[in-house]
């Protein structure tokens, strides 16, 4: 049986199904990260002392990571635009660039974590580091999740371009929406944890 509305828009929603699906998923993600931000605010306002993020964390590395993630948001949206222009080769190049940015982000994150662990700093150290490791760790898992999806669309999933190019284009749009959300979360995590 064929899956309905993978390309055509449903008459009642005006959207293809995957797009509505990803937005509902992102709504649940807002609640997940919202709960953790809420916990951070509560812990911070209730603490007698809360360290200044810049004194404890590596701001230059996090700044580089911010640029890397912003760049990856551009490359994924450029991949989608290239697919709409029927330029598959160019789209693949942009998707590889997105994957590379994700990998770069995780390598920098690993350097940051490695430095903390080598100094005996773990999530059990105090509330500041507990929230830092939890929020950045969960965000990092989302980056890895996105990279797995991009790897699939660059590998076995790329076959779809030959048979159903519009459906493939829509798939890149939906995973792009997810990737932009991951970027969006980082945009708020960066000043909240590292700079304030």
């Amino acid at each position: 049986m064929e899956i309905p509305y993978t390309v055509a828009e449903r008459p009642d929603t005006g959207l293809y199904n995957a797009k509505l699906g990803i937005w509902l998923f992102l709504a649940s993600e807002v609640m997940l990260f919202g709960a953790l931000f809420s916990a951070l605010i509560l812990l911070r306002t209730g603490a007698d002392y809360w360290p200044h993020g810049a004194d404890k964390l590596n701001v230059p590395l996090a700044t580089v990571n911010t640029f890397v993630l912003i760049a990856s948001s551009v490359t994924v949206v450029m991949a989608w635009a290239s697919l709409r222009l029927k330029e598959f080769g160019k789209a693949k190049m942009y998707l590889w660039a997105t994957f590379a940015c994700g990998l770069g982000f995780m390598v920098i994150k690993a350097i940051e974590y490695g430095s903390k662990f080598s100094h005996g700093i773990t999530p059990a150290t105090d509330n500041f580091y507990a929230t830092y490791f939890l929020l950045t760790g969960l965000h990092g898992l989302h980056v890895v999740g996105g990279m797995v999806v991009f790897a699939y669309f660059l590998g076995p999933g790329a076959k779809m371009w030959r048979t159903e190019p519009e459906r493939y284009t829509n798939r890149i749009e939906t995973c792009g929406l997810y990737w932009h959300f991951v970027d969006l979360v980082w945009i708020f995590l960066f000043p909240t944890l590292y700079l304030l």
């Binding site: 948001s73 551009v74 949206v77 792009g176 932009h180 970027d183 969006l184 945009i187 708020f188 960066f190 000043p191 909240t192 700079l195 304030l196």
Partner: peptide, 16 residues
């Protein structure tokens, strides 16, 4: 910081 983050977030949400 939150004002600038909100502007950046709005740009990502609106355009990307």
């Amino acid at each position: 910081a939150l004002l600038v983050a909100t502007i950046k977030g709005s740009l990502v949400a609106c355009y990307f």
